[in-house]
Simulated assay, not measured.
Amino acid sequence: MSEALVPHKKRNYKPLIIIVTIIVNGLVAVLSGMPGYENFDAFDVRILPLLNAIFNSFTFLFLLAALIAILKRKVTLHRRFIYAAFTTTTLFLVTYVAHHFLSSSTPYGGEGFLRPVYYFILITHIVLAAVIVPLALTTVTRAWNMENERHKKIARWTMPLWLYVSFTGVLVYLMISPYY
């Protein structure tokens, strides 16, 4: 029997999505409030924010390519770019958590017009980054379950928000990097 004719068994990913969301957002929230590891000297932790920005840049580019691919109805290419975006997002998360575990927060030192712009970008980035975790996971699991219409409905929200989060992650880095 052809693989296309075999009924696909839907899986309930909701408990996993909830657990991952709580762990990821909880870990980020806890580490953001910690003072950082004192006297860490195995390597220069100031490299980690740069890696964060690089991973966010790749996530943005992969998402943009995924969007273009699906608009051209190239589903397999779209899927590959989405998996690449998940990979770079995961790598971002690892370096982000490591940075916040190993060093204290860096205050923004800019003044004038750029200060409120920076904080607006930062706050919207943080809030939407927390929201994107369950959204992206729900979107991908709907695709895995072959719930194409439900996948498309949520992807219309997930894609622009995830693009915004990855792009503003790079902007935040560029604006605060002189103060590291």
Score class of each variant (00 low, 15 high):
residue 125 H to F: 01
residue 134 P to C: 00
residue 114 L to N: 03
residue 107 P to A: 15
residue 141 T to R: 00
residue 104 S to N: 15
residue 110 G to P: 06
residue 117 V to D: 04
residue 144 W to D: 06
residue 127 V to I: 15
residue 132 I to H: 03
residue 125 H to M: 04
residue 107 P to N: 12
residue 103 S to W: 10
residue 120 F to K: 05
residue 147 E to H: 01
residue 115 R to E: 12
residue 154 I to M: 11
residue 123 I to M: 11
residue 113 F to W: 08
residue 104 S to Y: 12
residue 145 N to W: 00
residue 150 R to G: 10
residue 148 N to P: 02
residue 120 F to P: 03
residue 126 I to R: 05
residue 146 M to F: 10
residue 110 G to S: 07
residue 103 S to G: 14
residue 144 W to L: 15
residue 130 A to Q: 05
residue 103 S to I: 09
residue 106 T to N: 14
residue 105 S to T: 13
residue 128 L to R: 00
residue 112 G to E: 06
residue 107 P to M: 12
residue 119 Y to F: 14
residue 150 R to Y: 08
residue 116 P to R: 05
residue 137 L to H: 01
residue 155 A to S: 15
residue 104 S to L: 14
residue 120 F to S: 12
residue 138 T to F: 03
residue 145 N to L: 01
residue 128 L to Y: 03
residue 104 S to W: 10
residue 143 A to G: 13
residue 150 R to I: 08
residue 127 V to P: 01
residue 106 T to S: 14
residue 127 V to R: 04
residue 127 V to H: 03
residue 131 V to R: 03
residue 110 G to N: 05
residue 105 S to Y: 13
residue 117 V to K: 03
residue 112 G to I: 05
residue 128 L to G: 02
residue 121 I to M: 06
residue 125 H to Y: 04
residue 155 A to L: 15
residue 112 G to F: 05
residue 155 A to I: 11
residue 118 Y to R: 07
residue 137 L to A: 04
residue 105 S to L: 11
residue 144 W to C: 10
residue 152 K to N: 14
residue 137 L to E: 00
residue 137 L to P: 02
residue 142 R to I: 07
residue 109 G to S: 08
residue 154 I to C: 09
residue 113 F to D: 08
residue 118 Y to W: 02
